[in-house]
Each structure stands twice: as structure tokens, then as C-alpha cells.
Design a protein around this nucleic acid. Sequence first.
DNA 1: ACACTTGAGTGAACACTGTAAACTATTAAC
DNA 2: GTTAATAGTTTACAGTGTTCACTCAAGTGT
Lengths: 233, 233
Amino acid sequence: MSETRRERQREATREEIKATARRLLAEQGTAGLSIRAIAREIGLTPPALYRYFASLDDLVTALIVDVFTALAEQIEAARDCAGPQAPPSAKLMNVLRAYRRWAVDNPADFGLIYGTPIAGYHAPREITVPVVIRGFAVIVGLLEEMTQQEEIIPVPSMQMPPPGVEASLQAMIEGDGYPVSVAALYMGTVGWTQFHGIISLEVFGHLPPVVGDTNAFFEAQLRNILIGMGWKG
Amino acid sequence: MSETRRERQREATREEIKATARRLLAEQGTAGLSIRAIAREIGLTPPALYRYFASLDDLVTALIVDVFTALAEQIEAARDCAGPQAPPSAKLMNVLRAYRRWAVDNPADFGLIYGTPIAGYHAPREITVPVVIRGFAVIVGLLEEMTQQEEIIPVPSMQMPPPGVEASLQAMIEGDGYPVSVAALYMGTVGWTQFHGIISLEVFGHLPPVVGDTNAFFEAQLRNILIGMGWKG
DNA sequence: ACACTTGAGTGAACACTGTAAACTATTAAC
DNA sequence: GTTAATAGTTTACAGTGTTCACTCAAGTGT
């Protein structure tokens, strides 16, 4: 771990570039995200940035990883903010609310990771999948706890996913050494898709004209979805 | 309705431009969607296109309307393909499957309307909302039929949406003269968000690495979601 | 049938974009 | 103190959306 002066300096400018990029992203959307704009902002010539990122796509990939990480940290913070004694169901609801609030407050970031961020660009899976999993794992972990404490008694349909799906989930559990039941993982997946649907429609502006009070809608769905899985709420 | 020769010609090139745009979109994603590329393909100089669309954004908006319309037509075709005698539940399942298949087969189109299509661009609501509603209305209509024929007996949570939401739905029913029960509209909204979550995660590639067999996952959710609302399937 | 108007299309230009190559100057290493 | 690596610049190319001034053909009015 040779922490030479140069390497530290290099890492610092790399961070500065990413920070500037995310600021521009938040201010002007993906339109403002250009090598030249970042360079201008930071006081360098555009080609200089190529010392730090091989291309704009490369920079975007790095941003995506950062954004997923930030989201995962928000989620983990929300899980822990009610104290370790809190029932897992309370933690889970905090987590889901935090997920939504983060998406609504940072629509550009959300669009970057869950939309079609930059023209023609889609992040390489082998890089994004692990960081996606981190936030996802929190949700699954809490569902597992809820199951063990019998706060939730998974309904039959959640206990037996379709064969093809079960195989994939099983492989995930074994492959990643992930000590969790198939039911919890399946509930996590189902819940993830359902909450993602609500949040993504809200962020992109399609939901508000229909439901009006998106807050109330979300809270109602929060209960409905968990109850639908077998929560004794 | 003066159908002068010139006006017909004009409309024809407008259509040709849009068709070329959608082809480029399907072939190369939003990256290939450029005024100059379209002009090149179609054998015109770039500025000529400004006779037909005020800007690229304007063209994109027109494309979005077309895409929503195409989706609505797919949905309506799927509703009717099983014949008028078919039970509404069968029609609804056909509709939802058609929705998914369309999205999976036309990811660029799907991204255009439900993602962050072009850098910094978001379609004006007053234009998109009506075309969104058209497909949505089909789903709601079938849920209403299912309710009337008692194929579905809405669970309590679907019969009483939260107050703020109910007000908005009620306003929608009255404002648009839309002869449908609040419960059906609410179920439609909830189902819409949930299916959208699955489909959008699948199209953008986040779901497959987790569930493996997305087909089986979708079919299972199709049943689960309807049953969760009170379907006697 | 002829003049007049309208509108489609072009060419050149401006201000941008990502990126590559060659070069300079600074900094670390021996 | 010499040498090697590396940060950064200049210049350049090919592409983008868009505007302006212009040409030329098609339709219209008399």
C-alpha cells in the first residue's frame, strides 16, 4: 500500500473530477455532463481528463458505481437509525422510505443508474451488479430477520417461486455465500420490483398526475405490499 | 380539411422522418438519434428537417407520442384477440403479457418513453399524459369488467385508497367523464406501477441476473398481483 | 398564360461535443 | 544530478444542433 505523494494527488483529482461531474449532473441533468464542461469547471483542458478516465463512458461508469454506493449507504443508514433493538419491520419500512426519498431528491442520480442515462450507453453488468446487490442485500436481510422473528409468515406463493427462478436464487445464495432463505430472497426480489415501479414512475413524472398525493400512495403501498407477502402488521 | 397536394406531400415526409428516426433509434439506441443522421439516411441536408420539426426536441416529442400510440394499439389488439366473449381476466392477462413483450422487443422505444431518453430532455406533460392514459384506460376498463362480473372482488385495501389519492382518482373520473369505479381505477394504478417495475427492471437489464428466468418470474407475478387484489383465479 | 407568392431545399457558418497525437514542463527515483 | 515517468497543453479531426442567406420549383390569382 505505497501511498506515494503522487498517487494521493492523482486520487484527489480523480475525486474532484467525479464530484464536479455529479454537481453538473444534478444542476443540468445528463445534458450538462460533458468532458469539456467538467474540464472548464475544474480549470483544466479537456484532454487532461483522459489521464484519469479512459473515456466519457468510463467516467460515467465510475459515477454509476459511486451513485449506487451512495444509495446503499443511505439505505444502510436508514436501517440503523432506529437503533439495533427496533423490530426488523420498522427498519425495513425506514429503508424503503429512505430509498424513495433519495430517488425523489436526486432524480438525476436515479436516472443515471435506472434510466437510459447517456446516449447509447449502458454500464457493463460485471461492474454494476455487485453494487446493485449491496442495497438489495439490506432489504433481503431484513426480510430474513422478519421471517425468523415471525413478524412475517411468507404466504405460500412466496415460499415457492417458479422452478427456473428458484434455481437462480439458489445459485445466488450459494455462489455469494449469502446466508438467507430462498423465501426471503424471493420476497426481496418481488418487493424490489414493486417499489422500483412506484418510485421510477414517480421520479420520471408519470405517477403524480394520476394519484395526486404520491406520499399517501407510497405509504399505502408500503403496507399493502408487505401485507401481501404475509406481514402480520 | 383542405387536402391540398402540398399538404399531403408534407405529411408524407414528416412521416418518413419519424419512421427513419425510429429505425435509427431501434438500431443504435438514442445515440443514433441525430438530425444529421436522419437527414443523411433520408437524402436531405440537415437544415431541411427544420421545415418539419422546430428542433430535435420537437421531433423526439412527436416520436414519444407515436410510441405511446403504438403501445396503446398493441394493448388494444391484445385485449381483442381472444374474442369479445372471452372473460375479462383472460383479456387482462393477454394485455399485460403484450405490454411486457412489446417492451422487451422494443427496448429503445420503451426507454424513450419511460427512461431519460435524450440528454437533458423530458417530454412536456400536457402532451404525454393523454397518450399514457389511453393504454392505462384499457387496463382499468378490464378491471372494471372483472369487478362487475365478480371475477374479482376487490380486497378492502383496494376499495378504499388513501384520502388524497381517492380525491385525485375521483377528479380523474369526473373530469374525463370516465365511467369507472374508484376501486377499478385504484387497482389499475397499483397494478400499473407493479408491472412497470418488473418490466422496466427487465428491459434495463437489472432483473435477469437476479431471477434468471424472467418469463417464469413474470408469469408468477401476473397471478400473484391479480390474486393480491382479490381475483378469484 | 403570365406574374407573383409561397415554401422546399441547399451551402456556409457558428458554437459546441469526444477524442487522438505530439509536445512541454514538472516531479519523482536512482 | 541525471534519467525516467507523468501531468498537462496545443493542435487537430470528425461529429453534433442550429441559424442565415440564398436558390429554385411548385402552386395561386388574374
